[in-house]
Nucleic acid binder design. Structure first.
Lengths: 358, 358
DNA sequence: AACGCTTCTGCAAGCGCTTGCAGCATCGTA
DNA sequence: TACGATGCTGCAAGCGCTTGCAGAAGCGTT
C-alpha cells in the first residue's frame, strides 16, 4: 500500500507537503499540488485512516445503537442513517443493544474513542449519562427526548388521533387495540393517546394483548377481536395487522365492510401508492437521515455553537383505505361459512382506563 | 482518557510492560500483572484502538456489504452477522451497495485498510476481483458462490421443490408464480427450479410479473391470479404473498380452500410456531452468523491453512399451512360478493418454458 | 563456584499521518 | 535599494500503542 512517503519521493517533495496537498490543497502552490496529485494517482495512494485518526482524533466512523436490526422500524432508520453517513463520507457502525442497558453502556464505552459521533435509537441510558457521552462525542437521539440533546421523534400519536377521529366520524363506538410487546415505550404512548380519546362520550377502547408484534399474534387474536363486539381494530404495527386481516379473511369477515382496521405504526405499506390498508406511516428513513445530518453539524461545529434543533416528524395517514362505517351485524368467531348474526358478548376484556399508563 | 503511560506511572513499570500485561498477560510476572491491572482499573484505562491498529494492522472492525438494509432478508443476515461479530469482540460496519457495482467497488477499496475482513452479501464484482480483495483481507460471501472463497448459500430451490411436490401430490396442475423484481438473480434461480419441474406431464406454471417485491404488488396481482385459472399461487416473497392474500380475502376467496398459496422466500413467518401460511423459510440470521464465524477463522489463521468450508444451508417448509387440494370452482375477479362460477379463461399469460432462464 | 538458561523488564524504534515552527524565496512598498 | 509581509515548503516532534532486542535477575546444572 502506497504511503505518503512514496508519493513524496515520486513528486520530489516532502511527506508533509503531500499531506497538505491531500487535506488542505489551499496551502500548497498550484504547480506542486498538481505534481503531488499525479504522483499520488500514479502510486495508487490511499491515506491510512487509522494513522490519520491517531493525530486528528477523527475516525470517519459514526456509531448507531439500535435495539435490534431485523425490525422494519429500526431497519428503515438504519438505512436512512447509512445513506446520509455515506453521503458525507463516513461509515456507519451498527451496535445492537437488544434492549439491554448494560450492552448499550458497553457499546457507548467501547466505541467512544473509535467514532466521531453517535446516533442513539431509543437509548435506555439516563439523561445524565447521555449528556456525559455527548461531552466527549456528539450524540443525536431518535425516538426519545433527552433534554440538552438534539433528538428526532415521530408523531405517531398525531396519526393515531387522526385515525381515531375518522373512526368516530364514521360512527364507530367500540374499538379494539391489539397491543404491542409488554413494557414497550411506544406501546405505552399509543395507549395513552387512545385513553385520552377514550374519554369522549360513547367511545370505548378494548385492549387486547399485550403480544409480541408478530404476524402470527395478529392472526391468533382474530377471534378475540370478533368476540369483543368491536367494529374496528387498531393493531400495534403492520405485521400484527396483516396477521389479523389474514385470519379474518379465512373466517369470511370482509375488510373494511365488516370490520375497519388500521395499523398504528407502519413502514410496510402506508406510503405505497395503491395500498389498501390504512396505517400510520412513519418516515423511518427520514429519522435516520436527519439524525446523521444533525450529527454532521455537531461534528463540524465549534464547541460553543447552538446545537441543531430537535424535531418531531409528522406521520402520514391514508384515511380511505381499510376504514368504513361500522356494521352492527357481526360474524361469530367460528371458522365456518360465517352465517351473520348479532354479536352480544359479555366482554370480559378490560376497558382502557385513562390513567393506567404512567 | 488514560493512556498506557498513565498506567505505567501508577504501577511503577514501563509502558511496554503495561502493553504486554494487557495483550499478552503470559509474558509478565504474576505480581506485576496484578499491579498493572489494578493500576489500569484505577486510571480507567482504555486502549486506543486506532493506535493499536497502526502497528498491528488489526482494527477490530468487520465490514458487511449489502444491497440494502430495509429488506427482511438482508436485515436478518445483518443481524446475525452483527451478533456474531460482537460475540468475538468486533464491530460491524455496514456498507450499502444498492446494487451498484461501482459503489461496491468503492466500499471495498475504502474499507480495505480499515477492517479485518469482509462479509459480502450477493456481491456484484467479478470472481477475479474478489479474489484479489481476499488476498489483502479475508472475504466470505453470502448467497453467491465464488470459486476460491468460502461462501454460504441457501437452498431455496430445494424448499421450492418440496412445495412444488406437495402441490402436485395434492392434485394441482396449474400454478401461478408471482415473479420478483426484473433481473433479480434470486428470481432467476427460482424460475429455473420451477421450469425444471414444469417438465413433468400435466403441470404448468404461469409467470405473473415481474414486479417489485411489495405488498401492494401482491395485492394488485390478485385478479391476474384468479383470471389465470391456476389453483395455487407461489409468491416471490412473503410481502407479495401477504398482499395477494389480503386482496383475495376482500374478494371472498378463501385460503387455502379456494386457492393454495405459498411464498418462495420468507423471513417473516415461516419459522413462527403458529403461522398459517406456508413458505420457504430462509435461515437468514444463520447466514450472517456463519459468515462471520468463518471470517473469524480466516483472520486468525496462518496464510497457508485450508479455508473454512462453504456450505449450503437448508430451508424449512411447513407444508400444512396454506396448501390444500385444488378446487375447480373458482371465483371471478370482480370485487363484489363473489358468486361461485367456473373459471375458463383463454389465459394470455405465457407458459414458462424450461430454457428461458440462462 | 561458574556457567548457560529461562524469565521478566525496559529501551527505543517504529506504524503513517498531521502540524507547529522556522527557513527561504518572492513580492510589494517606501 | 532595503525592508517587512506573504506564500510555500521542510524539519521534526508527536499521536498511543506494539515489539525486537538486549540487559538483568533468578534458577538449575555440572
Amino acid at each position: 500500500m502506497a504511503g505518503l512517503e512514496d508519493v513524496a519521493r515520486i513528486a520530489g517533495v516532502s511527506a508533509s507537503t503531500v499531506s497538505r496537498a491531500m487535506s488542505r490543497p489551499g496551502m500548497v502552490a498550484p504547480t506542486t499540488l498538481e505534481r503531488v496529485r499525479t504522483a499520488a494517482e500514479q502510486a495508487g495512494f490511499r491515506a491510512n485512516p487509522a494513522a490519520r485518526a491517531l493525530t486528528t482524533g477523527r475516525t470517519g466512523f459514526l456509531a448507531m445503537l439500535v435495539p435490534s436490526i431485523d425490525n422494519p422500524f429500526y431497519a428503515g432508520s438504519i438505512a436512512g442513517a447509512q445513506a446520509a453517513a455515506e453521503a458525507s463520507g463516513r461509515w456507519l457502525i451498527i451496535a445492537v443493544t437488544d434492549g439491554s442497558a448494560e450492552r448499550e453502556a458497553a457499546a457507548l464505552r467501547d466505541l467512544e474513542s473509535q467514532v466521531d459521533g453517535f446516533v442513539l435509537l431509543m437509548p435506555l441510558a439516563g439523561a445524565g449519562e447521555l449528556k456525559r457521552v455527548h461531552e466527549r462525542k456528539p450524540v443525536v437521539v431518535i425516538n426519545r427526548k433527552v433534554p440538552g440533546l438534539t433528538s428526532f421523534t415521530v408523531d405517531t400519536p398525531g396519526g393515531l388521533a387522526r385515525i381515531y377521529d375518522r373512526l368516530v366520524e364514521l360512527g364507530h363506538t367500540r374499538v379494539a387495540y391489539l397491543a404491542g410487546p409488554p413494557g414497550s415505550w411506544m406501546d405505552r404512548r399509543r395507549r395513552q393517546v387512545l385513553s385520552e380519546h377514550s374519554d369522549r362520550p360513547g367511545l370505548s377502547v378494548r385492549v387486547l394483548g399485550p403480544m409480541p408484534p408478530e404476524f402470527s399474534e395478529g392472526a391468533s387474536h382474530a377471534d378475540a377481536v370478533l368476540d369483543s363486539g368491536c367494529t374496528a381494530a387498531l393493531a400495534y404495527n403492520s405485521s400484527v395487522l396483516l396477521g389479523l386481516v389474514f385470519e379474518l379473511g379465512r373466517r369470511g369477515v370482509r375488510v373494511p365492510d365488516d370490520l375497519s382496521v388500521a395499523a398504528a405504526d407502519d413502514m410496510a405499506f402506508a406510503d405505497l401508492p395503491g395500498s389498501p390498508l390504512t396505517a400510520v406511516g412513519v418516515p423511518v428513513a427520514d429519522l435516520g437521515r436527519r439524525a446523521v445530518a444533525a450529527l454532521d453539524d455537531l461534528i463540524g461545529a465549534a464547541p460553543g455553537s447552538p446545537r441543531p434543533a430537535s424535531r418531531m416528524l409528522s406521520t402520514t395517514v391514508r384515511l380511505t383505505g381499510s376504514l368504513a362505517a361500522p356494521r352492527l351485524r357481526r360474524v361469530r368467531s367460528a371458522g365456518s361459512t360465517a352465517p351473520e348474526q348479532e354479536a352480544h358478548h359479555p366482554s370480559s376484556q378490560r376497558e382502557l382506563g385513562s390513567g393506567e399508563d404512567a
